[in-house]
């Protein structure tokens, strides 16, 4: 199955892209995707706390993903 990862702020800077398309195996979770994102970033995201959103809603615990899901790892926000 295929999912999209939206990248913002420090994640975008670290990965040098605003979007990734990833192939996942059934049963893989948001935690697996975060690990892949962090690996891809090398050490650039070390120490950066990332919150997870699936289909534009924050999720607190790792959860299974479905084909077509949109995932984002949200660095500390800075509005205002």
């Amino acid at each position: 199955m295929k999912i999209t990862v939206k990248c913002f702020s420090q994640v975008k800077y670290a990965l040098e892209t605003d979007e990734l398309s990833l192939e996942l195996n059934p049963g893989q979770t948001t935690a697996d995707v975060e690990e892949r994102v962090r690996q891809r970033a090398g050490k650039k995201l070390d120490g950066v706390l990332l919150r997870t959103a699936v289909n534009r809603i924050y999720v607190k615990e790792p959860r299974d993903l479905e084909d077509g899901d949109e995932v984002a790892f949200i660095p500390p926000v800075q509005g205002g």
Binding site: F8, S9, Y58, A72, I74, P75, V77, Q78, G79, G80
Partner: peptide, 14 residues
């Protein structure tokens, strides 16, 4: 409102 906006609304500064 402003404190929570800075905590949860996904907006970032470059």
């Amino acid at each position: 409102f402003i404190r929570e906006l800075k905590e949860r609304v996904p907006i970032w500064k470059w």
